[in-house]
């Protein structure tokens, strides 16, 4: 997808842990294929990828991964419903033009959806904006406002509100802390929105059968 943020190794590992062995997985915005390569090699997962950059796609295919060039905003509609056990959108939703429509498509084509994103409600972000009056630049949000691919940043609270709006069920939520530590949340609250640098959500579509696949 649009230039991805440097993936956090621990975060990808945690995402991989959520995926059961031999599942069918689509990684939207798979970059250089780090996650799907890991899933295919260690968990015998039938892993596919979509990547916006043709250079990234060719590199993935040269590594033996099944990846196509495509755009999350326009190319998800061609996939059949429930074609994948898991669809993953790692550090990409904030770079899409229509995050809500993309999320709805993900919930259509995947039985479960994993989304991770940087939290714009993180206290350092808030403090930088409050104190300097300039668009905040942090370790994970490193671009200047006029050249950032991150055109739709949100906070954890914003994201939770969006899942309610589209009637998606939050199965799990995890806070990614500044040092990379990841902790499970029972329900994301005010304090988590302030202390987490990022978040990972496991979503299910409305009315889908509960329980592991």
């Amino acid at each position: 997808m649009l230039a991805k943020m440097p993936p956090l190794r621990k975060e990808l590992l945690r995402i991989a842990e959520m995926v059961p062995a031999s599942a069918r997985v689509l990684d939207v915005g798979c970059g250089s294929g780090e996650l799907i390569e890991y899933l295919a090699r260690t968990q015998n997962v039938d892993a596919r990828g979509i990547e916006l950059s043709q250079h990234g796609v060719n590199a993935c295919v040269a590594k033996g991964l099944s990846v196509i060039q495509g755009d999350a905003d326009t190319d998800l509609s061609e996939y059949p419903p429930s074609g994948f056990d898991f669809v993953i959108l790692s550090q990409t939703i904030q770079a899409t033009r229509q995050p809500k429509a993309v999320l709805e498509q993900l919930l259509r084509i995947g039985k479960r959806v994993i989304v991770s994103f940087p939290n714009f409600g993180f206290w350092k972000v808030r403090l930088k904006l409050a104190l300097t009056g300039r668009m905040p630049r942090t370790g994970t949000l490193s671009h200047a406002w006029h050249e950032t691919p991150n055109i739709h940043l949100c906070t954890i609270a914003d994201f939770v509100a969006l899942t309610r709006e589209i009637d998606a069920k939050i199965e799990r939520s995890l806070a990614v802390e500044e040092g990379g530590e990841i902790r499970e949340l029972s329900e994301p609250g005010y304090w988590d929105n302030l202390t987490a640098e990022g978040a990972i959500f496991l979503l299910m579509r409305p009315h889908a059968a509960p329980g592991p696949t």
């Binding site: 043709q54 796609v57 060719n58 993935c60 295919v61 099944s66 996939y79 059949p80």
Partner: peptide
């Protein structure tokens, strides 16, 4: 993709 096939696509 619509058929759910295992497909890669590269452009050189």
């Amino acid at each position: 993709n619509a058929a759910g096939a295992n497909v890669s696509f590269v452009e050189f």
